[in-house]
Lab assay of single mutants.
Amino acid sequence: RFRLSPAARNILEKHSLDASQGTATGPRGIFTKEDALKLVQLKQTGK
């Protein structure tokens, strides 16, 4: 289970993504908004 920032949680839910597909870069291993946006971008480019 990942620790998600509220913004990251919202983005992941909106795009039906799972945090385990990305890398948490925030302090103390928190999955940040920026991490979520990177994951969305990867999904949109098909990689």
Rank of each mutant, 00 (worst) to 15 (best):
S20N: 11
A19P: 15
L12D: 14
R1K: 08
S16T: 12
T25N: 05
D35Y: 00
I11M: 04
Q21S: 11
G26C: 00
S5K: 02
P27G: 04
L12P: 13
D18G: 03
S16G: 15
G26E: 03
K43V: 09
E13R: 09
K43I: 08
Q44I: 14
L42H: 02
A8C: 00
G26D: 05
L37C: 06
A7R: 10
A8N: 01
A19E: 11
N10Q: 15
Q21G: 12
K43G: 11
F31W: 02
H15W: 10
T45I: 05
L12F: 03
P6M: 10
S16I: 00
D18T: 09
D18C: 07
P27N: 05
R9E: 10
L39D: 12
K33P: 02
D35M: 01
T32S: 04
S16N: 14
A7T: 14
R28C: 13
K43S: 14
G22I: 05
G29F: 00
R28E: 14
Q44A: 13
T32I: 00
E13N: 15
E34Q: 14
S5H: 01
T32V: 02
L37R: 06
K14M: 11
V40Y: 08
V40S: 06
P27L: 03
T23K: 13
T23S: 11
A36P: 00
L42Y: 13
Q41C: 00
K38G: 07
E13L: 10
S5N: 08
V40W: 03
K38I: 03
F31Q: 05
T23E: 14
K43P: 04
K33Y: 06
S20R: 09
A36T: 02
G46K: 06
A36R: 01
R1P: 00
A7E: 15
A7K: 11
V40P: 08
R3K: 11
Q41H: 05
E13V: 06
D35N: 00
L39T: 04
K14R: 08
S20F: 03
D18R: 01
K47C: 14
G22A: 07
T32Y: 00
A8W: 00
L39H: 09
G29D: 12
R1N: 07
G29L: 02
G29V: 01
T45A: 15
L42S: 09
A36C: 07
P6W: 09
A7Q: 14
I11R: 06
L17D: 04
A24I: 03
L17W: 03
L37T: 13
L4H: 01
S16P: 09
R1M: 04
P6N: 13
S5L: 01
S20P: 09
K38V: 06
A24N: 08
P27Q: 10
G26Y: 01
R3W: 12
D18A: 03
S20M: 11
K38H: 11
A7L: 05
D18L: 02
L39C: 01
H15A: 09
N10V: 14
F31C: 10
T23P: 05
I11G: 06
R3C: 13
L17T: 08
Q21I: 02
G26I: 01
G22L: 05
E34C: 05
Q41D: 12
A36H: 03
D18H: 06
L37D: 14
L37Q: 03
N10L: 14
K43W: 02
T23A: 12
